[in-house]
Amino acid sequence: MKILLIGATGYIGSAIAENLTRTGHEVVALVRDAAGKGELPYEKRVADLTDPAALGAAVTADIDAVIHAGVPSGDQAVDAAAIDALTAPLRGTDRAFVYTSGVWVLGATGVEPVGEDAPVNPLPIVGYRPEIEQQVLATATDGVRAVVIRPGIVFGRGGGIPALLGNLAREHGEPKYTGAEGVRWPMVQVDDLAELFTLAAERAEAGSLWHGVTQAAVPVRELAGAAGRAAGVVTAPALWPLEEAAAAVGALFADALALDQAVSGQAARDRLGWKPRHEDAVSELANGS
């Protein structure tokens, strides 16, 4: 398949691009500036997510699927217009459009892991994202193989939100985490997540929604301790008061870091044949991943 990838130079998108290439697909990277990203081993097409006309023009007849792993703008109207532009050329063709959302749209989930049928209760930081999800999925009625993936907290390759835990440990001289004592995060390793995106582009049904999660609920205290050890800080993790976290990283992001969730990603294993290989976030973080 020839796949137009939005966000190909980002943390998640770069892993998706590598996985697509490794599995025999041809990547076309959508970039804002053809000269600004340096050399990429992929064909490049230029368009900005704020320019619907350019986005639509990038989805030519030779594109078999589109994967949107770009960063949301924060403006619902802009993001909605981008979705309309990217999916318009796909309507009536059964070509795939795979959109990246996230588990924060679920809000606090309770003790037991929830599946894709759980109601949404989005945090303010992702307040309009469920509406974008529904906009994407609705295109399935117009002949688009529309798919939404909600990744958990992504780790690996020294990046993602867990990398912040290592930085906090170095800054404060002790591992830090915010929220309640038992706060938990659903986790997924970035290369495993990239495999899920490839499977979704290849075989997911139109109108389907998937949780990209390999560990349903990992105690953040354990993650903070592991990240601290990798950073050379071996003291016990300590709670970071939410007010202090908000002052340091912003109130919306601090609330997300404090969110307790348990989310199941079993459906993708059962129905798409997803086979994650990195299922111990604590160990990987402790080893510097």
Rank of each mutant, 00 (worst) to 15 (best):
S101Q: 08
A29V: 12
D48G: 03
V98W: 05
G70P: 09
G92L: 10
L30N: 04
T21Q: 15
A29N: 10
D51N: 11
A54C: 11
G102T: 07
I67R: 00
K37W: 05
R32Q: 06
L90T: 03
A54M: 06
G110E: 13
D84M: 01
A35L: 13
G24E: 09
A69C: 14
F97H: 02
V27S: 04
T21W: 01
Y99I: 02
V98R: 00
W104H: 03
T50E: 09
I67V: 06
A61S: 15
A85V: 11
G10L: 13
A47Y: 14
V71Q: 06
A17F: 08
R45P: 14
I67S: 00
A47L: 13
V78P: 02
P119N: 08
S101C: 06
P89V: 06
V59M: 07
F97T: 00
V120A: 10
D84V: 02
F97Y: 15
V103S: 00
G115H: 09
N19W: 04
G115C: 09
L20N: 03
A96Y: 01
L90N: 02
V111N: 11
A17S: 05
A54G: 14
G92N: 03
V114M: 08
A80L: 15
T87R: 03
R45K: 15
T87Q: 07
R32P: 06
T50S: 15
P41H: 01
Y99A: 00
T21L: 06
V28H: 02
T21G: 04
D84L: 02
W104N: 02
P89W: 12
T23S: 09
L55V: 13
A77N: 10
S14T: 07
G36S: 04
G102K: 08
R45L: 15
A77K: 15
V59K: 05
L5E: 10
Y99S: 00
G24C: 12
G13I: 13
S73G: 15
R32Y: 07
D94M: 06
D62Y: 07
P113W: 07
I16F: 04
A85D: 08
E43R: 12
D62I: 07
P52D: 13
V98Q: 02
A69G: 05
D62G: 10
E18Y: 04
L55I: 04
P89I: 10
P113G: 03
A8F: 13
V98D: 09
A118W: 14
A88L: 15
A8M: 13
A34Y: 00
P72K: 02
H25L: 10
Y42G: 06
L55Y: 01
E43L: 11
D51M: 06
D79I: 03
D84K: 05
S73A: 08
P41T: 07
L5A: 07
Y11H: 15
T87K: 00
T50R: 08
R32N: 05
G102H: 03
A15L: 08
A61M: 11
V28I: 13
P41G: 03
D75H: 11
T21R: 09
H25A: 14
N19D: 14
A35I: 00
G92W: 01
V105G: 02
R45C: 12
A118T: 05
A61Y: 06
A82I: 05
L30E: 03
A35Y: 01
A35G: 14
K44Y: 08
A8P: 10
V31E: 13
H25S: 11
E116V: 07
